Simulated assay, not measured.
Amino acid sequence: MVRLTRIYTRTGDDGTTGLVDGSRVSKADGRMAAIGDVDELNSAIGVAIAQLPAGPLRDELLTIQNDLFDCGADLATPGDDPQALRIVPAQVAQLERAIDTLNDDLAPLRSFILPGGSAAAAAIHLARAIARRAERALVAAAAGAAINPEALSYINRLSDFLFVAARHVNQSGEGDVLWVPGASR
């Protein structure tokens, strides 16, 4: 169990931050950029949750928020410590099942869609865009450090889940805003 008694430590005033193993890295390190993007993604999902009624989608998003904390811990733990908290294949598989469940009720796409519709769907679309950025940050971090490939798979699958979830929230796709190529020409 985590117990925080003091929020500030002053140890980061020099532009570094501590990893789980006690090592320190620059706050500009690629690993830290990925952790920051995952944190921002988690916050965006919280905004979306605040706009949803109680139900299965809200519950799934709450599970995802916990998974994203696991992902942050995974990214903050360098090395191959077998006791480290890591994203595991079962978490990726759960996202795939959730995607399939939501997608079963959606009308097929007739066009690309704009990120909008209802306020809740727009918030989910924003989270999806942040998930894509987090994925790019994980790929960049993996170029310089060992990153758990399951964490990358999880974030990749999460952007797919959020796309389908936004469509689900938009009355099973009926409220989607369709892209009209060249509409303002």
Rank of each mutant, 00 (worst) to 15 (best):
S43P: 02
I99L: 01
D59W: 09
R128E: 01
T9H: 13
G144D: 13
M1W: 04
I130N: 09
R132G: 04
A76L: 07
P82T: 12
A44H: 14
L61S: 06
F163Y: 15
Q51G: 03
M32F: 02
T11C: 05
R6K: 15
A151D: 11
N148F: 13
P56E: 14
V2I: 03
L75D: 04
D81W: 13
I49G: 02
I124K: 07
A183F: 14
V177L: 15
A145F: 09
D37R: 02
E96M: 06
L152E: 12
I130A: 07
V169Q: 14
D176T: 05
K27T: 04
Q83F: 09
V47Y: 13
A145Y: 09
P181N: 11
G144M: 04
L75C: 05
V180F: 08
A129H: 06
G18K: 07
D13R: 12
R31E: 00
L68R: 08
D80A: 13
A137D: 12
V139D: 05
T16E: 15
I147A: 05
D81E: 10
S184A: 15
A146H: 13
L126C: 03
S172N: 15
A48C: 06
R110E: 15
S159W: 05
M32A: 01
A145P: 02
A145M: 08
I113W: 00
G72Q: 10
H168Y: 15
R86Q: 04
R167M: 07
N66R: 14
S118G: 12
L162E: 08
A44L: 11
A143N: 08
M32R: 03
E60P: 01
A129G: 04
